[in-house]
Design a protein around this nucleic acid. Structure first.
Lengths: 117, 117
DNA sequence: TTAATGATTGAGCAAGTATTCAAATATAAT
DNA sequence: ATTATATTTGAATACTTGCTCAATCATTAA
């Protein structure tokens, strides 16, 4: 659906629209950024990230901290793994997860500042 | 569902779990933070925010920039309004939106750094 | 080898969400 | 007043998502 048909006047300020369009990131980058935010947009996943911000933890202990079933945690960890937000190491039967991205802590910190106000 | 029933050994490292738990934000704060990330977790909304990061825009022009129907944009703007992420001013028939939170630009900037790498 | 344990996976379901469409508001122009 | 325009809104729908349950895999212990 094009905007030509949506807005009867099509565009109010064509010059402004062009200017803004030129400075936007590529659609691909926008989608990727949204994906990163989406990874942090669920309380369970955010809780996991908050926990791993403090210490490396095995799946079972993450489950205990977050108070969500091991299965559910494992599903979410897979997503965080795919997003390259967490990494893991195996030690015997256990799998220890930790954060894999320095940007994450900054994002979480800013978000906390936001909600505290 | 408690973790006592989930993990056969309940908790691997009780001391670690307690320590982490003590340093976590309140559940309420976690949910609010997740809500903030969720607001930026959709490509359409993120595109809107990116645009408003550059200039104040009316709904019609946002629709043109993001290339999504005016109606859909309006629905998303309502959500961003509710989240106190954008504010607006009326001028005649038009409604101009702009960002209402200084944290947002920092979040978007960091997310961009993340995806560019 | 067999049993036990920590973790992963896939299917299914309930809840949430982004968009469309049609109708309704609000303001400006005729 | 009537018409046109910019925006908002509610309902409907297709899609996504987070969890549970059961089964499976991987590693260790007996």
């Amino acid at each position: 659906m094009t905007n030509d048909t949506v807005c009867s006047v099509e565009i109010i300020d064509r010059e402004k629209v062009d200017r803004v369009n030129q400075h936007l990131t590529s659609p691909r980058e926008t989608v990727d950024m949204a994906g990163l935010f989406k990874a942090l947009a669920d309380p369970t996943r955010l809780r996991i990230v908050q926990a791993l911000l403090l210490e490396e933890l095995c799946v079972c202990d993450i489950s205990a901290v977050v108070d969500v079933s091991v299965s559910a945690i494992s599903h979410q960890l897979r997503l965080l793994r795919t997003m390259r937000i967490v990494k893991y190491r195996k030690q015997g039967k256990q799998v220890f997860y930790s954060l894999d991205d320095e940007h994450i802590s900054r994002l979480v910190k800013i978000a906390l500042e936001h909600v505290i106000e």
